[in-house]
Amino acid sequence: MIPLDELLVFSGLLFSIGIFGVLTRRNFIMLLISVEIIMNSAILNFVTFSAYSPSSSVAQAVSGQGIAVVLIGLAATEVALGLAIVLALNRIIGSVDVAKAMELRL
């Protein structure tokens, strides 16, 4: 079995990659993917902690995996809406570049 530490380091790395992507990318699709990577790191954490749960109660130990499934559904819903927004925006400003949508700063 993979040690707990390595899994946590892996999900921490995923989280950092996601945050880095959100901070540096200017393409809306890339931003979406970065947010999804963060979400996936959270899901991975839930599964990890569930697998290594010291709790004697099975329901409590398994709940993390249930949460993971729910979160996968949530992530899919979010992306569907995000793509709808970016499609509508692309139709108007002809670009998926976040920097091009800066009218509100004025």
Binding site: F15, L32, V35, I38, I43, N45, V86, I92, L104
Partner: peptide, 25 residues
């Protein structure tokens, strides 16, 4: 303008939710 607002709100909202869920994990 409304679409631009929706885009900003979406990115910030999805990001904050993802961070919250990471904290919850």
């Amino acid at each position: 303008r409304a679409l631009e607002a929706a885009m900003k709100f979406y990115i910030i909202g999805a990001l904050s939710t993802a961070i919250s869920f990471f904290g919850a994990s």
